[in-house]
Structure formats: C-alpha cells, structure tokens
Design a protein around this nucleic acid. Structure first.
Lengths: 117, 117
DNA sequence: GATTTTGATTACCTTTAGGTAACCAGTTAC
DNA sequence: GTAACTGGTTACCTAAAGGTAATCAAAATC
C-alpha cells in the first residue's frame, strides 16, 4: 500500500481568526449592540447588560477601542464623565453579525428537525 | 438630575451565539476545511493540521457530527476504517466564513493604516 | 458628615479550553 | 516476533477567560 496522501491546510485563515477575536468571547457583541443602541456611559452600558461586571466591561471597552470599534471621550465636567461612541468601522460588523444570526437560525431548524425523530 | 435611562439588550442573540459555538475555538474551522478539501480519515485529517492532537481532533469531530456538519461512517474491512464526509448543511457555512474573512481583511487594513501614523 | 454616584483598578479564585503523553486492540509489513 | 499502522480513550497539567469583591478619588445628595 502506497503512502497516503493528505493536503496541508492553508493558513490564509488569519483574517478569519482576527474577526473571531474581535467579536468572540461572551460579551463583545452584547456591548457593541448596547452602544449602537445609544448607551454612552460606563454605568449605562453596564446596567444594560445583566451579569456583566465592571472588570470585564472595562477590559472589553479597551479592546474595542484598540480595534477602533468605539471612541472614548473624557468630558471635562464636575462629575467627570466618559463617553463611548461607535465608529463607522464598527458598523461594518452589522453585516457579519447578521450573517452569523441567519446561519444560527437555520442551524437551529436543522438540529431541532432531526432530534425529535 | 433625573434618573438616567438605559435600554435593555435584547437576547435575540442566541442564534449568533450558536453559530459562534459551532465555528469558534482554535481548530473547528481548520478541521472543516481539511474535510472539505477531501481528507476523509482520522490520521489523514490529523496530519493535515500541524500541532493538532488526537484528543482535540476526536472531541471536535464528535461535536461536528452532533452539529450535522460531518457524517461518520465506519467501513467494515480488515483494518477497520472510519470515514468523515462533509454534509450539505456544512457547506452553508462557507458563506459565513467568507464574510468573516472579508471583514478580517478589511479590519487589518484599517488597523495597520492607523498605527504607523 | 455619611452615603451615593461617577469611571474605573487590583487581587484572588473558578471554570473551561486546550496540550502532553501513555495506552488499547486489531492487523499488516519487516 | 517486533515494529508500525488503524481509530481512538484516558489521566493529568497548563493557560486563558471570566467572575467576585474590595478599593480608589472627587463630587453630589441626604
């Protein structure tokens, strides 16, 4: 028997990994949506997402700022307020999330159509 | 100052989570692509993906079978062989992955265009 | 003057994902 | 008979993600 052949997997998957890193994790999409919906302040965003802790929110907001999904502005006022606003770039994610949503809906149909057989 | 308003985030995000669970993780997409490319046997798939261990492959193949992305067939022969083949359902993921890829490519452009300023 | 609100940071713990290596039975080639 | 192939399983360990709770300063409210 001759040696089995196998094809090597290409690593042009880096951009796919990048995208999954940006929107992956338990909270990132929820936080993004909260900001898209108009929540601007730290506590406002925190309270809009049940069970989200300040620590995680703080870390995710930094990540999202680095990834240019949001802009952080410190307003000089008496109780110093910070504003988070979505960038134009962030909005290009809406299409991606919609795609994930559509596939997920269809997948549920497939799975539930087969299990109760 | 009146009580700040904040909007609650909807949880129609379950299908998005589902999709991320199905394609998330370090290896799932690589394994899928390997099978799409024609690799059918356990060791063949394993060798096509550098650094992938048998334990992780074994677990991921089970997950993928449950999610109806692949079909597992045991061929009764002398050295018992097992074949993994992609389902039609799995192919609907190609569009999703392409979408992730496109966004990732564009995201890299954005990020690298800003950092060396 | 004590508490509450603002936007956080820090230390510590738990949970999950993933990695390492040994081992199994059956078969075939050396 | 011994080595290597087939398709896996098991026990153990590490690393990363996430959760809990305390703390911070400055200002406003009670």
């Amino acid at each position: 028997m001759k040696k089995k052949e196998h094809k090597e997997c290409m690593s042009a998957l880096i951009p796919v990994r990048d995208t999954l890193d940006v929107i992956g994790g338990k909270w990132k999409i929820l936080i993004l949506i909260s900001i898209w919906e108009g929540n601007k302040h730290f506590r406002e965003i925190e309270r809009s997402i049940p069970k989200l802790s300040t620590k995680v929110l703080s870390k995710e907001l930094k990540d999202m700022e680095e990834n240019q999904l949001i802009t952080r502005t410190v307003l000089n006022g008496f109780p110093v307020r910070t504003e988070y606003t979505p960038t134009e770039h962030s909005k290009s994610l809406k299409k991606v999330i919609l795609e994930l949503y559509n596939w997920g809906v269809n997948h549920r149909k497939k799975i539930f159509a087969t299990i109760p057989s």
